[in-house]
């Protein structure tokens, strides 16, 4: 096996390693939210063009993932969760990942422009720039608010999907953006509370390390409260309706209650039940986002039958 290892270190990657560079799990979320953005937007776009647009939005997101892995290879190697990524494992050379990410970014942006319109392509280019440069290179290692601002990169896909169909940005697109943008901090901080990763060794300032866990718990509460109005407001726009509003009211009430419970606990209580509440809220936050976008989709799907929307 020693000779095989030698080849591995010389950068002989398998096909799967290139797929891993695209962060497929993040991509699946992008596909879902971009798809909702496309499907709820008014106007009839050809299904093939809709599918192509979603595909290239996802490819752009994947490309920014590859660029992120190129830049963060040093800290990925230090942290247990990311140590098995292709670059720290030596299967893909850093330069290869950079070229791969840049080439796919170019292809994704140009193809989205050809398939839909220039504004959507411009937004995709900005998203890639935002994630790779603003978040990865600049914010991630310099401020504990990194995930707050970096969350914008994950919030763009439904807006790009909407713009790909309508050609313009409207209040609905902005509210879908804000829903993900405001949801990201409580989601990640709940994770940070129970995943005690060695961020400090890796040189990444996480709120739990820089300001302590008590402050993080308060931040979760504050950001959850700030998220609620955006989630509910979307219910009163053209993409909302009674179904969405009912789902949203329930989900927000549960999320607020979870954030409240996290806020009222201290570390001793959390240690005692192995962070049960934090884990619960983290899992629920995934469901929260999924069901909100699912409700948008339900409203759009029922519209032809006179049931969805207001």
């Amino acid at each position: 096996m020693s000779d095989a290892r030698l080849y591995e270190q010389s950068g002989e990657a398998g096909f799967g390693d290139y797929i891993a560079l695209l962060k497929p799990r993040v991509m699946s979320l992008v596909v879902f939210t971009a798809m909702v953005g496309v499907l709820v937007a008014p106007g009839n776009v050809h299904p093939f063009i809709a599918m192509t647009s979603i595909l290239f939005i996802a490819l752009g997101a994947g490309a920014s993932g590859a660029l992120n892995m190129w830049w963060d290879a040093d800290i990925d190697a230090v942290m247990k969760r990311t140590a098995k990524r292709p670059i720290p494992m030596g299967r893909v050379q850093p330069g290869e990942a950079l070229g791969f990410g840049l080439a796919l970014s170019g292809i994704a942006v140009v193809m989205l422009a050809l398939a839909s319109n220039l504004l959507a392509a411009g937004l995709l280019a900005f998203t890639i720039f935002f994630y790779a440069v603003v978040y990865s290179m600049w914010l991630k290692r310099s401020t504990p608010q990194n995930i707050v601002i970096g969350g914008a990169a994950g919030a763009f896909p439904p807006m790009i999907g909407w713009v790909a169909v309508t050609g313009g940005i409207s209040v609905e697109a902005v509210l879908m953006f804000m829903l993900i943008f405001m949801w990201t901090p409580p989601h990640f901080w709940a994770l940070a509370l129970f995943m005690k990763e060695d961020y400090s060794n890796a040189g990444v300032p996480m709120l739990t390390v820089t300001h302590g866990r008590k402050v993080t718990r308060a931040h979760i509460m504050v950001y959850t409260v700030a998220l609620v109005p955006f989630a509910l407001a979307a219910g009163f726009t053209s993409i909302g309706g009674p179904i969405y509003l009912a789902v949203s009211v329930i989900l927000n009430a549960v999320f607020l209650w979870g954030a409240w419970r996290i806020w009222r606990r201290d570390e001793v209580q959390a240690e005692a039940d192995h962070y049960a509440v934090e884990k619960q809220v983290f899992k629920f936050s995934l469901l929260y986002l999924f069901l909100h976008f699912g409700a948008f989709l339900a409203e759009a799907a029922l519209k032809p039958y006179g049931l969805g929307g207001w």
Partner: peptide, 24 residues
């Protein structure tokens, strides 16, 4: 085997891209 898998994968991706451009 790894190299072969990579080549087959890239071949399929390129073929899919051709189909996509044609469809578009």
């Amino acid at each position: 085997k790894r190299r072969f898998g990579r080549n087959v994968g890239l071949g399929l991706v390129l073929a899919a891209f051709v189909v996509l451009i044609f469809g578009l």
